[in-house]
């Protein structure tokens, strides 16, 4: 079945990824992540000085600012800020930098659906670029259940989101990733650790778990992509040092 955006042939296909790190010169780390025509830029400053009232004695304070493409920040953006902050807090080894602040700014550059998932992926790349110590890496994917066909579509566009019965965004860490060299037993033994799950709309229990399963498989591709992106960036930096 061809999808509404005509570039994809399968319901479980993601749009092409694109990422770019270290774009901004004033921030300590920055990255852009695209899912097709959805694009998010993220900048990270820190660990740096923090306002006295936000200071935490035993760890770094993480501040997230989400800025929409059009208009002033609203409730939706505040909700995304909270989602990002609360997902990242256990991931960042903030105990290593007590009494400092890490500021994360997320800016939508192009909006064609699945913005929250794009923002999660951009943020983790920016944190890696800034050299913030992390416990693990995350990957995020959104899927919908189509209202007409009841089919699960991965990485929906704005148009597809309009026909959605329910929308699900999942974030998984890479500690439980299935690698190509892991044995069958490993694969069965992995405990899927979900970092964030957000669902809206009407859906059944089976649908939810099916969505989670499909997203989990899709996130492996995102993890792989992030890994390659970081690897390439480090290789390039090494070459620059030695040349």
């Amino acid at each position: 079945m061809s999808r509404l955006d005509r570039t994809r042939t399968s319901a479980h296909q993601l749009r092409p990824f694109f990422s770019s790190q270290n774009l901004l010169n004033r921030a300590d780390g920055s990255a852009q992540f695209d899912f097709g025509e959805s694009s998010v830029m993220c900048s990270v400053v820190g660990p740096a000085e923090v306002k006295l009232r936000d200071e935490k004695l035993d760890r770094a304070t993480i501040e997230v600012v989400v800025r929409p493409l059009v208009g002033l920040p609203g409730i939706k953006d505040k909700a995304r800020e909270q989602a990002l902050r609360e997902t990242l807090e256990p991931l960042v080894l903030s105990g290593l930098h007590p009494r400092t602040g890490i500021q994360i700014v997320v800016q939508t550059m192009k909006d064609d659906g699945s913005i929250l998932a794009t923002a999660f992926n951009a943020t983790i790349l920016a944190l890696l670029d800034a050299g913030i110590p992390l416990k693990s890496i995350l990957g995020a994917v959104t899927c919908i259940v189509d209202a007409e066909t009841n089919q699960i579509l991965l990485d929906p566009t704005t148009q597809e989101l309009a026909n959605a019965k329910s929308t699900h965004t999942f974030v998984f860490d890479n500690k439980s990733s299935i690698t190509s060299d892991s044995t069958q037993e490993d694969k069965e033994a992995v405990e899927v650790s979900t970092l964030y799950s957000d669902s809206t709309g009407l859906f059944s229990e089976e649908e939810y778990f099916e969505c989670a399963q499909i997203c989990y498989k899709a996130v492996q591709a995102v993890h792989g992509f992030i890994r390659t992106a970081v690897q390439k960036k480090l290789e390039k930096e090494q070459q620059q040092i030695h040349s």
Binding site: L24, R26, A27, M41, S43, V45, A48, V65, R67, G71, L72, Q103, V105, Q107
Partner: peptide, 15 residues
């Protein structure tokens, strides 16, 4: 026009 200075440009700009 909406010309709010984002902290992305510089950490000196506060929200």
């Amino acid at each position: 026009f909406n010309t709010e200075l984002s902290p992305m440009a510089s950490a000196a700009f506060e929200v």
